[in-house]
């Protein structure tokens, strides 16, 4: 001992760092990633690779050459955005479209605000919505998963899209469900057309349970989204089952699980307090359903989360946690 260190307390630190937390999110996404690759094959692998590598490269270049500071890709947050973006896209998306999505997600939604922790909107969702608006053809070209070794790709609409279209043509929900042959077990375990990450509800739930068990996230936001969607769609469905889809269908389709488990719970763009989080979740659930039922898009989770992202500073101002000794 040649020098004695002197510093204020505390003298020890928890082992949980930003890197550990973000890496846990990537680990939690692995089941969904693996399932999507198994279902969609090498095309999905390409989307994932392009998305993750582009996100890392873009963040590296921006931090090193625009912001002129040390690279922040080591914190794993760019990787999280990359995986989430890929899971939010159809597996057939061309590589350059994926790259543009990554550019908007990291370059615009994240780094222009100052990087991790500073952004208002969830970067992956901004990327996805940018692509949805700019390249509707690519973004709504869904494919029914044929498995790793499937050859003949079958194009089709997502369940929500198919139902919406059918309803506009005057058919009723039960008829449409029957004619498309949608079953809940199919939605739970595999494959109903949609974004890669929506392929298997169970895979997403496994990741969610991992995050909650590792104390990376609190379950309140997710539960309040799912609860709101279930409750509100139940009211509509009971009122008119011919016109409105049932709660279980709404919970299992349209990326609701992916969004509520992984995107709405993003630390940076969600409220800090439990109360704020519950209101945030109720807002997302309600807006999602309103878009699905009455909007022109068949799916509403992305928009709902982005809209509620904008209320986060307000929610943080309104709801504080209970202080000791101050009633």
């Amino acid at each position: 001992m040649d020098k004695i260190l002197v510093s204020p307390n505390p003298h020890i630190h928890s082992a949980t760092t930003t890197k550990v937390l973000m890496r846990d999110v990537v680990i939690a996404l692995l089941p969904a990633v693996i399932v999507s690759v198994v279902f969609y094959g090498w095309k999905e692998l390409l989307v994932l690779a392009v998305s993750v590598l582009s996100c890392l490269a873009i963040e590296y270049l921006i931090t090193r050459y625009c912001m002129k500071k040390a690279s922040t890709i080591g914190d794993w947050s760019a990787a999280v955005t990359g995986v989430l973006l890929a899971l939010n896209l159809p597996p057939t998306t061309p590589w350059w479209v994926v790259f543009l999505g990554a550019l908007v997600a990291i370059g615009v939604a994240k780094m222009t605000f100052g990087g991790l922790g500073q952004n208002i909107f969830n970067p992956a969702l901004v990327g996805r919505v940018f692509l949805l608006i700019s390249f509707p053809t690519y973004m709504t070209h869904w494919e029914i998963p044929q498995g790793l070794f499937g050859v003949d790709a079958i194009s089709g609409a997502t369940p929500l899209g198919a139902i919406k279209e059918g309803l506009m043509q005057g058919a009723s929900v039960p008829d449409l469900m029957a004619s498309h042959g949608y079953t809940y077990s199919q939605m739970l375990f595999a494959n109903i057309g949609g974004s890669a990450g929506e392929a298997c509800a169970i895979a997403i739930l496994v990741g969610f349970i991992y995050l909650v068990a590792r104390k990376v996230i609190k379950p309140w936001i997710t539960l309040s989204i799912l609860g709101t969607v279930a409750a509100v769609s139940c009211i509509f469905w009971l009122a008119n089952p011919a016109q409105f889809t049932d709660p279980l269908f709404n919970l299992l389709t349209g990326g609701l699980l992916l969004g509520s488990c992984f995107m709405a719970t993003d630390y940076v763009t969600s409220p800090m307090s439990i109360k704020g989080g519950i209101i945030f979740g109720i807002g997302i659930g309600f807006i999602t359903l309103m878009i699905r039922y009455f909007g022109s898009y068949p799916e509403g989770v992305s928009f709902a989360i982005l809209i509620m992202n904008s209320t986060v500073p307000l929610l943080n101002n309104w709801f504080h946690q209970k202080k000791y000794g101050r009633a």
């Binding site: 003298h11 020890i12 100052g114 922790g117 630390y267 946690q321």
Partner: peptide, 24 residues
């Protein structure tokens, strides 16, 4: 007793969760 290099606040709220006085 190593202090980590400081990086951006990720707004995880772990500090508020840990504070025994309920501060933020």
């Amino acid at each position: 007793t190593k202090r980590m290099p400081e990086s951006n606040c990720i707004r995880c709220g772990k500090c508020a969760e840990a504070c025994p006085m309920g501060l933020e």
